[in-house]
Design a protein around this nucleic acid. Structure first.
Lengths: 215, 215, 215, 215
DNA sequence: CATGAATGAGGTTTCATTCAT
DNA sequence: TATGAATGAAACCTCATTCAT
């Protein structure tokens, strides 16, 4: 799903390389929450990783590669969600499955806000390849919800005009929790936000207009 | 509404200053759609404005000031919308008013996508003051919809738990039309997107569950 | 003869560009007599040119381009020699012509020793293209002497086994005046070196074994 | 003849030190044929030696010391030539002795071209001490030929104006076989080059103008 | 003894900003 | 007023050298 670019390294110890790159991804993410990628110096990133600028270049080929590391690391955080996709699909009640998936996904998003923020704010600094990686990943998420919605339509629980658009909306809104956090954080908690999202979606797609009140 | 910072200039002809700054804002916006602010050189911006780098500095104090110009210019684009706010409020039917306001606002957003993109992608490059300006502006937009929703609640047309959250959602979704355009543009037109938005919102807030189908 | 590479510049004033590049070539040559190209920093070269490091990069694309400038400028120094080639060929006495050509060329070499030193010592730092330029130039010089020798053979003044080798030797020996200057400078003057060269060559190629004593 | 600088080492096993330094000299020479010393990293040299960068530093004090090793090793290659010098001097026929010496020396040069190339191209990167070592060595070679020429003059076989210059010319021309190999290699073999050299020299210095044809 | 990961000084290069014209 | 050449600070990146293993 995620095409991992082959990044230059001077080391042959692939374990160490993996460990250091993880370290770089984590450190970089920490700094990049506050400052734009371009405005952040390699020195700053190195310091946040507990490395010297020279060391960082033993594990990457150029500053740009740090974007790849951050993306890879961020996406890895969602692996459990993707692995659970089949579980949602096997649930008898599509409504319950959707509720569960939304809640799980939104909690994932919330627990690694730096990643989504990075994706939305640094898109313009990314190479076409990096952007492609990102869009592929996004589509994968949308697809999980799309399949859930499809199943609900098939079972008659949902009535939906354009399944893709609704799936997109669910993903959009999760991003908004992060991107517009300065607004939302003042007015509601994550739980409230999730509840509202579920209500909005279910009201819009449920055949039986009362069902969404039971959850 | 928007606190215009006082930017240094060497000129005394305030008309010329205004004209040149408009020119800069327009030119800069054109370049900044494609490249991040930090990755864009003053030379590039100057060329896009049809000026020399030296001339630009007769009308700004530093590169950062260009952000202010772009923001001011972008916000000015929404002036008609704000001026029409009272019209919406005076409409008898809150549902119709809301529909109208959403449609008007979304069209405004669509016609100057570069501005919203700039706001969301360059937030990290902005100074606290600039960010404040931006948030103030955002709140103003949300407020327009909040007042519309309040009125609908008062008249009994709407039943809303948290008016702020719904208003925020309307504004959020307009931003998503721009920020996730790479997804949406493939799957629906602006008109379809607006229709879906109106349906989602009305289904969620209307007392009379059928009303939103009539629009 | 010399393929001038197109080097990046930020200026459009081609006169200024030419002037500044000349300035760079001269300054660089002055520093590069003493230190290897790689061991010389751009800052040092800039200072020797009376420019700032930033300014130098308005007229070149990379440090490597300085090699081109030095080569171009060095070769230009030999333009008068090439232009005089026809004069030598039109002289009735091939022996006199050869003597004259050798003397002229060796004096040229002596008056810009830095250039030949640069060519022989930096060859390994040059790109294939630059090396090609250099070899082309070298061949041009050899060719001048080759044609003179050919003419002497045709007129019966010279008897030569391999004209190319003799021409090459003349050029080689001129380089040696520079490359082994630490030896030669202690033991002879340029005039003596030229005389010896002429004697060596004429003794080796003259049909009439006495002729070279008359010169 | 060659003052071997004392190079730092961490080892006490002087046999091992000698062996490793030989290894370094050979490996370095192999790499330095293609790339300038400054442009070659210690890592590359280490790899060419089959060592790690760390190991190299157990046997040298700094990268610069590698120049010393290469010089020492290269000069050692000429030891047999120097040892044979007395043999040449004891030959009855100076002309034959000179012919033999030239041929032997030129073959030596040809069989280790990398060394001469290194000497001529890296001179600017050498410290004064290293350059001194090199010039001393060069003078030693010139001296061998000088003594041969002196003897020929004494015996009446040669008539020479400036013995030093002729000796220098013999050595110069051997260097040219390497330094201008890109030209010569296309036009003649080593044997032809040696023959031409012997002819040039003998024609220039022989009392009996016919003698050189007999060889 | 051998290794190669880590370091950080210093090199090349870019670019916001100034200022003479 | 407008220009664009010049500046130099600071960024990215390399690599000689050290040192724990």
């Amino acid at each position: 799903m995620v095409a991992k670019a082959s990044i230059r390294t001077y080391s042959v110890d692939s374990d160490l390389v993996a460990r250091r790159r993880q370290q770089i991804a984590v450190g970089a993410a920490r700094v990049l929450v506050k400052k734009a990628f371009d405005a952040t110096t390699v020195r700053e990133i190195a310091k946040a990783c507990g490395m010297s600028p020279g060391t960082i270049y033993h594990y990457i080929g150029s500053k740009e590669d740090i974007i790849d590391l951050v993306l890879s690391h961020g996406e890895a955080h969602y692996k459990p969600f993707f692995e659970k996709a089949d579980v949602y699909l096997k649930m008898l009640n599509a409504t319950q499955a959707l509720k569960q998936a939304i809640e799980d996904y939104y909690r994932k998003v919330d627990s690694r806000q730096d990643f989504l923020l990075f994706c939305y704010q640094e898109a313009k600094n990314m190479s076409p390849r990096q952007l492609g990686t990102l869009l592929d990943w996004d589509r994968s998420v949308v697809d999980v919800f799309r399949r859930l919605l499809d199943k609900g339509c098939a079972s008659g629980e949902f009535v939906i005009d354009d399944v893709r658009l609704v799936a997109n909306r669910i993903v959009s809104d999760s991003a908004m929790w992060v991107v517009r956090r300065w607004f939302l954080r003042k007015h509601c908690t994550l739980e409230e936000y999730i509840d509202q999202e579920i209500q909005f979606i279910l009201r819009a797609i449920s055949r039986d207009k009362g069902v969404y009140n039971e959850g």
